[in-house]
């Protein structure tokens, strides 16, 4: 099984690669070449930074059509952090920017104000427990107990148009923040599985174990 990690200049690729390696994959390629996706069985889209820069990087390297084509073939794609946010239609970050449109919805800033008049500190940084928004069976979260903690580092989060695409959330001072989304063979994790200790490595192993939908 070949795992391709997309390199478009926006991320901590070393940690992602290493986490995939210790999760059991042997054939791993970190690639800046979109044509490599045609040979992949699993693709990971990592990334940190600004949404517009991320999309510009993907577009410049020619990854946008290659990712769409890969997904159309039913093979599993995992977006992490910014890579997850880019799966959606668009982001409000610094003006509207179009995303990959693989999962309908928007990326929005987490609200500063809480319902009881307090202010949230942002970015949201640290460990939080995953709460189910849909059944986890057959997903990257299969086998986890609700409340299992993973590491978040973000100010924006995905808001899917269809609630059925929401897989998990976490509570941040009384608001639900999106933790994971899934539509068919496309999965997104706002948290960093490669930085979430043994729980995160288990999530990556579950992704590697997913089957193609076509």
């Amino acid at each position: 099984m070949k795992v391709v990690i997309i390199d478009y200049g926006m991320g901590n690729l070393f940690s992602v690669r290493r986490a995939v390696e210790v999760s059991g994959a042997t054939d791993i390629e970190v690639s800046a070449d979109p044509s490599r996706l045609a040979h992949a069985d699993r693709v990971i889209l990592p990334g940190v930074g600004a949404f517009a820069d991320g999309m510009a990087g993907l577009t410049r390297a020619g990854f946008v059509p290659a990712i769409r084509d890969y997904v159309a073939h039913g093979r599993p794609l995992l977006g992490i952090c910014l890579g997850m946010q880019m799966l959606l239609d668009q982001s409000d970050e610094f003006g509207d920017t179009a995303g990959l449109g693989l999962i309908p919805g928007h990326v929005r800033a987490i609200d500063r104000d809480t319902d009881d008049g307090k202010r949230r500190k942002l970015p949201s940084i640290g460990w939080a427990g995953l709460q189910p928004e849909a059944a986890w069976q057959g997903t990257i979260l299969a086998g986890l107990t609700p409340g299992a903690a993973v590491y978040f580092l973000h100010s924006f989060h995905a808001v899917p148009s269809d609630h059925a695409d929401l897989l998990a959330s976490y509570d941040h001072l009384g608001t639900k923040v999106t933790a994971a989304i899934r539509r068919g063979n496309v999965t997104g994790a706002q948290f960093h599985p490669e930085k979430s200790g043994p729980v995160g490595l288990g999530i990556i192993a579950a992704f590697l174990a997913q089957t193609s939908t076509a």
């Binding site: 930074g49 600004a50 910014l82 940084i125």
Partner: peptide
Amino acid sequence: ANRFGSQC
């Protein structure tokens, strides 16, 4: 912050 995000 502009290049890698404030969170970084």
